[in-house]
Amino acid sequence: MDFKIVVAGTSLGGLKAITALLSALPENFSLPLVVIQHREYASGELLKGLLQKVTCLPVQEVEDKDAILPGRIYLAPPDYHLLIDRGEFALSIDDPVTFARPSVDVAFDSAAASYGQGVLAVILTGAGRDGAAGAASIEAFGGVVLVQDPSSAEAKSMPQAAIAATKAAHVLPLAEIISFLHQNCCLGGQPQHV
């Protein structure tokens, strides 16, 4: 499989899962990884600081029209929708979607329309149903969807909604999602553990 970009969505309680995912990424992780996490407006750049501590890959909170580069972690800024264009990001202050801004649906759908079969989407633990429609878009454009196994997720409704909305999503525990990323998103085949 030839992925171009990884997009991951989770809700407010997903910090533990995101931290586990990022801390397991090797130095030779060779794709852009975009994280859409529901968050409080006031959270500022706190999340960026927390996540930078667990990975050697550079973490940044997106500004409008920032370039999308491989081997970097991008965070959706609070109170904006993050949209993915070919090679760059765009932001919007359109109304919240399913009560969320940033919305996983909006980000996933735009990623699908820009990168088609090159999108690998990951839905992690979360409450609500944001991400389900987005995951369906990813499939419609030929991308691949991984969903954290609800039985191992702290909050099950977001993964469950994504499974219900898709036809061929891979339902995996977090550890296997991580190995999938190792096998498919790293330079030089076998990853070098750090």
Binding site: L83, D85, S114
Partner: peptide, 8 residues
């Protein structure tokens, strides 16, 4: 206009 926004 920004493509992903106008598309949406």
């Amino acid at each position: 206009y920004s493509y992903p926004s106008i598309r949406r």
